[in-house]
Design a protein around this nucleic acid. Structure first.
Lengths: 131, 131
DNA sequence: GAACAAATGTTATGACATTACATATCCTTG
DNA sequence: CAAGGATATGTAATGTCATAACATTTGTTC
């Protein structure tokens, strides 16, 4: 398994898992002050490792981080995110057809893809929120 | 046509068009000092309008902006970006199948999409670059 | 237990973006 | 044309996100 996290990694992971929504690195830091964390780098370093391990995803359009919805599948496949701008919740999904099409484009253009981001911002339709 | 840009909008547009690659707001600002621009907000305001008009796209994974490759089609359709991490060049493309799949997912999940980001980071295979 | 790799702690700084407020310009419409 | 509204501008200050550089500690391996 992947459970050999260091202290800081475990703290950050726990914070993100408990949040149920994306958090910024600085928000994570604020929530971990009492646990002894004091500098942004401590959080960013943990986030880097957790992201490498596939336990955390970075949402580019939010400059924030979210715990992977599939805690055990450190799949590095193509993941798409649907981000609700009302309630902040994120849904994670994969679509093989989308992946095939993007891979196909890349192949046709001799483009060697390293990382692909798909983020849909909108309204999840499930939240009755603060207006 | 769309040619009724204000002074600041025109300056920012010209800078971005001439660059042939994405620029950060602050880089644009630096290049427009001689034209009288002095504050980030002047650039950000112009970028907001140009983005609304579809003349400029924001690249979320880069925190940067690029002139639309199709200057006259202010299509607000789904656009994907392939960003070369070597040479910085960006290619812009659309894929109806990808759009249909993502629209389909949204429909099935009652998710009302407002804006979708697709960005592929990698190596364009066309650049022999600085190593 | 020496030596190396990995993780941590800390300070400072760099990079990206917005708030708040004042002023100016343009464009209606009576 | 004057009045009023909408849009664009100018400016300073501040807020938010991220990394560089360096010192120290911990963990592993032989």
């Amino acid at each position: 398994m992947s459970a050999d996290l260091t202290r800081n990694q475990a703290l950050v992971m726990k914070t993100l898992s408990g949040a149920g929504a994306p958090l910024s690195a600085y928000t994570i830091l604020d929530r971990l002050r009492d646990d002894g964390l004091r500098a942004p780098l401590q959080v960013y370093r943990a986030l880097d490792k957790l992201t490498e391990m596939g336990l955390v995803h970075r949402l580019e359009s939010l400059n924030a981080f979210v715990a992977c919805a599939h805690p055990n599948c450190h799949e590095q496949e193509l993941i798409a995110f649907a981000i609700c701008e009302n309630c902040g919740k994120v849904e994670e999904f994969s679509d093989q057809v989308v992946k095939d099409r993007l891979d196909g484009w890349a192949r046709n253009h001799r483009f060697k893809a390293a990382k692909t981001t798909i983020e849909i911002r909108g309204d999840c339709g499930r939240c009755e929120v603060k207006s």
